[in-house]
């Protein structure tokens, strides 16, 4: 328990540092944050000064940050001058789609990579394993922008299977349309993930399959399926779990590209537009949310380690 508390505290610290640095960086880069926040249209001097006061932009960074944190807790993060809505509404509208995109791609990648890796490791150096090894190597080397452009050209422009400009349709409204709209961005993100997961898991499984307790399991007369799924897989999950956490930041980055190419109105697109239009508060909120997501995923994976491995559980209970 102590370990979890410690880890939790550490992640909070990381979150605070990330958001503080983001705020300072964003505002320091601007010539006058208040003028940017006033927006390009109604920027009378009086209005600029009013905004300066309202967002405490005349105060030192730590104080500004404290006010921002207070606003974060009350979920009142101000208004976007360019999009004419409150930051909370904007993020609230956009975040779920990106979250879903991330979950879909990780989920799809895990569902596909587990059996592929297990079979490749089981028939090590066989034709399937070699094919998988080559294919994943190529897929890891395939930049997602190229993949997205290819997918967009063939599936959306040429064959018109999926819409080119995706729209935001919630799964509970029309599930079929929802799938059609998020399919291409999801595949864009998932291909690289599948390749990475398969390579990691296969390598770990090959190692595990050579360990003594697998010979022991065979000597017990267990079936290959049982040995693979019940004995070998569980001991081989650690690198994969670490990788899921590490890749999550990358997935958010990929989401910006994918949303931009397929015009899917998610957080990535919002962030991209906000940076271009100097919409400081939106950038800050997006960055905070991204950082929060990364931090939470890391925490969950940390907890999962202990669930999977009793040795960690005990070592931590003692330490």
């Amino acid at each position: 328990m102590r370990y979890f508390a410690q880890r939790f505290l550490q992640l909070i610290v990381v979150f605070l540092i990330v958001t503080f640095v983001t705020m300072v960086a964003i505002q320091a880069a601007s010539k006058d944050p208040a003028r940017d926040l006033a927006g390009p249209l109604n920027s009378t001097e009086a209005r600029v000064e009013e905004i300066r006061k309202h967002y405490h932009l005349d105060r030192a960074y730590p104080i500004r940050y404290a006010y921002w944190l207070k606003n974060l807790v009350t979920l009142d993060l101000g208004n976007s001058p360019t999009l004419g809505a409150s930051v909370r509404t904007l993020v609230g509208q956009r975040a779920p789609i990106t979250l879903l995109l991330g979950l879909y791609s990780i989920g799809l990648a895990l569902i596909l990579s587990l059996p592929i890796a297990v079979y490749a490791a089981y028939r090590r150096d066989g034709p399937f394993d070699r094919f998988v090894s080559g294919a994943t190597f190529a897929a890891v080397s395939l930049p997602n922008i190229i993949l997205a452009v290819l997918l967009g050209y063939f599936f959306a422009t040429k064959w018109r299977i999926f819409p080119y400009a995706a729209s935001k349709i919630w799964p509970w409204d029309d599930f079929g349309e929802h799938v059609r709209n998020v399919a291409l961005p999801t595949i864009t993100l998932a291909v690289g993930l599948i390749a990475i997961f398969v390579r990691l898991l296969r390598a770990d499984l090959v190692n595990t399959l050579q360990s003594d307790f697998i010979v022991m399991a065979r000597a017990k007369g267990l079936s290959p399926a049982r040995i693979l799924w019940r004995h070998a897989l569980r001991s081989s999950l650690f690198s994969l779990m670490t990788s899921v956490a590490l890749q999550f930041g990358g997935i958010l980055g990929g989401a910006v590209v994918a949303e931009q190419i397929f015009a899917l109105p998610g957080m990535g697109l919002l962030l991209f537009q906000a940076v271009q239009q100097k919409d400081l508060l939106v950038v800050q909120a997006c960055a905070a949310l991204f950082a929060l997501a990364v931090v939470i995923i890391n925490f969950i994976v940390d907890m999962l380690y202990a669930v999977v491995d009793p040795r960690i559980r005990h070592a931590r209970a003692l330490g």
């Binding site: 990330v18 958010l252 910006v256 962030l271 960055a287």
Partner: peptide
């Protein structure tokens, strides 16, 4: 290790957009 954690938690794209897009 806290610094590394911070850098890893910094979504790459946010960092890039801020540094290149603003600075």
């Amino acid at each position: 290790s806290v610094i590394f954690d911070v850098l890893l938690a910094f979504p790459a794209i946010v960092l890039a957009l801020i540094v290149v897009g603003r600075f």
